[in-house]
């Protein structure tokens, strides 16, 4: 009964609060620790490493921004940087038009729920779940100039002049890889767009139809503005993916961006700089880190700006 003092009551509730805090800390501890150790610490270290000279795995003297100057202004190496950067730009622009444009068309058609709608979804998404390694090698085999299925087919239909060594010519290598990439990924934006379209209330579309809008009007005036959030996400993901593009060119063109650096990418250049190769010489963690920091700043800045801009045109569906 009421033999406890006011102090006792207070401490009982304080104890409960402390216990609650311990429990929350216990829940958060493993995730925070692992994320901090294996993601945040390396990210911060990368900045730190970029201002030092490196000899293999051993850190040398502080060199300020010398590594950055080396990456950006040394004419021996910066030609690779600019070449790779413009290739990445080409990748982004092409994927936006070919991959995402096709995805939008497919999504708009699938949104009408035609016969075979489920089947189409599964088929379009099938390559998405496969490893880039499998896709890359598979298409490398298909695109083999002599034995590959593509050229065999072209010769069969008497288009012999078209049977080019697709991955061997600087003019066609990057384009071929981009088509492979689009083939691999197109299902992803398609289904993201489709999900966004399905979230638009059917009433709105029916109201527009009653207002006399054509299918094209509906797509342009109702669906397109209301699926803006999905567009934002896909544009940003495509941007990040394009400037981190690595697997397909690595597998299909090799570490040196063959042929003739026409498929060289920032990712490959970074790998070569950091871990060494024929063209980049020995492994150099200093300039490698500087390059990584520059790439990160570029991607971060532009994806933030893009997100800002794209989000501002989104309309809240109430």
């Amino acid at each position: 009964m009421s033999t406890l003092t006011e102090e006792n009551y207070k401490s009982a509730s304080v104890r409960r609060k402390r216990l609650r805090q311990l429990w929350i800390a216990f829940l958060l501890f493993p995730a925070v620790t692992i994320l901090a150790t294996f993601v945040f610490l390396p990210m911060i270290s990368a900045i730190w490493y970029s201002v030092y000279e490196w000899d293999g795995l051993v850190r040398g003297d502080f060199v300020g921004l010398a590594n950055f100057a080396e990456v950006l202004f040394n004419p021996q190496s910066n030609k690779f940087l600019f070449n790779a950067f413009f290739n990445n730009v080409k990748v982004f622009v092409t994927l936006m038009i070919v991959q995402n444009g096709l995805a939008l068309a497919l999504a708009l058609l699938l949104a009408r729920e035609p016969k075979g709608y489920r089947f189409y979804q599964v088929v379009f998404f099938l390559p998405v779940i496969l490893s880039t390694v499998i896709i890359g090698f598979q298409w490398k085999l298909f695109l083999n100039p002599i034995f590959g299925l593509v050229n065999t087919f072209l010769r069969m239909v008497e288009l012999d002049s078209w049977a080019l060594p697709w991955l061997g010519l600087p003019e066609t290598a990057l384009g071929s890889m981009l088509i492979v990439n689009a083939w691999h990924w197109v299902g992803f934006p398609t289904l993201v767009f489709l999900a966004a379209i399905h979230r638009i209330p059917k009433d709105l579309i029916e109201a527009a139809r009653l207002d006399g809008a054509s299918e094209w009007n509906i797509a342009r005036d109702i669906i397109w503005p209301l699926m803006a959030p999905a567009v934002t996400i896909i544009v940003v993901l495509t941007f990040i993916g394009s400037f981190n593009w690595f697997e397909i060119p690595y597998i299909m063109g090799g570490l040196e961006g063959s042929p003739a650096y026409s498929t060289d990418m920032l990712g490959l250049l970074f790998y070569r700089t950091a871990f060494g190769s024929v063209s980049a010489g020995n492994s150099d963690f200093g300039t490698g880190s500087a390059l990584a920091v520059l790439i990160f700043i570029f991607i971060f800045t532009f994806s933030t700006i893009a997100t800002r801009y794209l989000t501002s045109r989104e309309v809240e569906l109430s």
Binding site: M1, S2, L4, N8, Y9, A12, S13, R16
Partner: peptide, 19 residues
């Protein structure tokens, strides 16, 4: 919810500190 101030009794027994 825990009160900021005040007391709660059931049958004369103070209970506001109990879970």
């Amino acid at each position: 919810e825990e009160q900021t101030a005040g007391e709660i009794y059931i049958d004369g027994e103070r209970i506001d500190h109990l879970p």
